[in-house]
Structure formats: structure tokens, C-alpha cells
Design a protein around this nucleic acid. Sequence first.
DNA 1: CAGTATTAAGAGTATTTTATCTTAAATTAA
DNA 2: TTAATTTAAGATAAAATACTCTTAATACTG
Lengths: 145, 145
Amino acid sequence: MKVLSKPSEYGLRALMFLVTKGEGKGYVNIREMAEELDISFHFLTKILQSLTQAGFLVSSRGPNGGISFARNPQQISLLDVLYVLEGQDFLSKCLLGLPGCGDFAPCPMHNSWAVMRVQLRNLFEHTNLSEVGQSVQLERLRLSP
Amino acid sequence: MKVLSKPSEYGLRALMFLVTKGEGKGYVNIREMAEELDISFHFLTKILQSLTQAGFLVSSRGPNGGISFARNPQQISLLDVLYVLEGQDFLSKCLLGLPGCGDFAPCPMHNSWAVMRVQLRNLFEHTNLSEVGQSVQLERLRLSP
DNA sequence: CAGTATTAAGAGTATTTTATCTTAAATTAA
DNA sequence: TTAATTTAAGATAAAATACTCTTAATACTG
């Protein structure tokens, strides 16, 4: 079961990293983040660019540049982030991939799946970046030891 | 959010089809199934082969051959099927894709994600092929009208 | 037994996703 | 000004997933 795409996984990990590592500091260097998280610099850059364009982050060029939260990470839910990285139809697709499926033409799984989707939505909506970022030990976000 | 792979989607749709279409009949022709469900015959064949090998279906060659349930579809849960089509680690992966994540080295999402996984598991475990197959109108399983 | 419909297996192709690399422009600090 | 750093766009490559095609073996029907 692949809930999140790689860009989403990487994006969330980077944002959690930014919560703890970015405290006090001004901007956090992207190259450094990429190394600490074992993510390709260029790949991570693209992901973070989309989060900057979406208004979650602010960036600064030049020496001591990098990224930083545009608003309090407490006010950014995982759902906000995933809508950007996964697309707006994240959480609204038919389990069986049937195009016409919906409340008025439900597939056999539609109703019970709708219940799950609400729960998933609640989880992502009520989890903010600050809480997940604070609770994590940074080495946990790495891919290799 | 891609919960199921295409082979799983197709496999489940085919099994639901088999529940309604296969009642009374002996074997159901795979070529006919493929046409009714808008799935490539060869692709569907492979998926059904793995379900036959897993013991859910029996097949017969020659004229009037095809597939049929090896046991009552009431006794086959979606989870049984998905374990075969998605692999045994279906439902046990870290949301953030972190390799070491587990109860003893949890990632920031591990605990809340574990709760969701249990719910997903319950849904799939307590839904059997018979009930979803019976409740469906066949045209709902098609991709195009 | 002969013909044929079907399963079965695997090679091969296409598409999508993920990842890398290159180049250049813009911005900032010292 | 110079060096460091991000932004941006796009070419390319690698890997995973999805799909198709070919061939062979099997087993049923008449």
C-alpha cells in the first residue's frame, strides 16, 4: 500500500527536519538538509520549491540563504502539505480505480471506503508539522545510519 | 493516494464479477471477463493465475473452460486476496518510508499511523468477496460505458 | 484421435515515477 | 566585487509499474 509518493515522503521529512533544526536559526541550508536526510539535493530542491510557491516556506538566496517557515508550523497541517505534493484529489479516489464511482453511482467498496477516507483525512488534518517535528529525533529521519 | 496497485484493482473487480456472473454456471470464461471488465486479456490472465496458485480459484482448460471459485467466496476476505496481490507487507510499511521505523524506533507518524493501519486491516479483513460481489451491479465494474 | 479453446509462462515493450545532471540567472553577504 | 547560495528550466537516466505479445502445454469436445 503506497499511501504517499516519494516527493511527499521526502517533503514531510524535510519539513519535520526544518521544525527542529530551524528553531532560532534564520534560514536552513538546503544542501545540508539534503545530506542529513539522504535525499538528492536537486530532487529535494524541486520539492521545496513547490512548498515555497504554495506559501508554506520562504527562501533566501545567497550566503546564509536557505529556507524557513513562512508561518508557524503549528498552523500547517499534514493535509495542507499533502494537498500540494499529492494533488487535490489526494483522498478522493475510488479504491477500485473506477472512474464513475461516487455517492450516486457507488462501486461495491465506495461506502465503506468513504468511512476510511474520512478517518485518514482527520488524521492528516489534525496533525500539524510542529508536533511531528518536535517529537522526532533527527536521526530517525535519515535513510541510512 | 494509491492504496492498491493496478493488478489488485483488476483482481478484485474480476473476483466480484465472478461472484455474480459465476452463480450456477460452471467455469467462467476469462476472455469474456476481460472484455466485460475492459481489462487486457493477457494481463488479467496473469492476475488470475496468481489467485489460482494461491488456492482461491480453480481453473479448467479446453472448451467451456475458465475459472471458478475453489471455495465459497464468503470465506475469502479482501485481505486474503490483497496479501497475494500486494504482497505480505501490504499494511505494514512506514508512512514516511523510513526503513528502521517500528514499535521500538518509531518515526513521528508511527503511532498514529499504526492506528489507521489497524482500521484498514479490519475493513479488508471483515469484508468478504461474496458481499461486495453480490451488492454490485455489473456495469459498475467496467471502465468505460 | 484430431482439432481447438483455453491455461500457462515468459519475453519483450511502454508508460509512469523517481532521480540526476546541466546550465544559467538572480540574490545576498562579506 | 567575489563567492556562495537559491531559483528555474529542461535534458537525461534509471527504476518501477503496467501492459502486450508470442509460444507452448494442456485438456476438453465431438
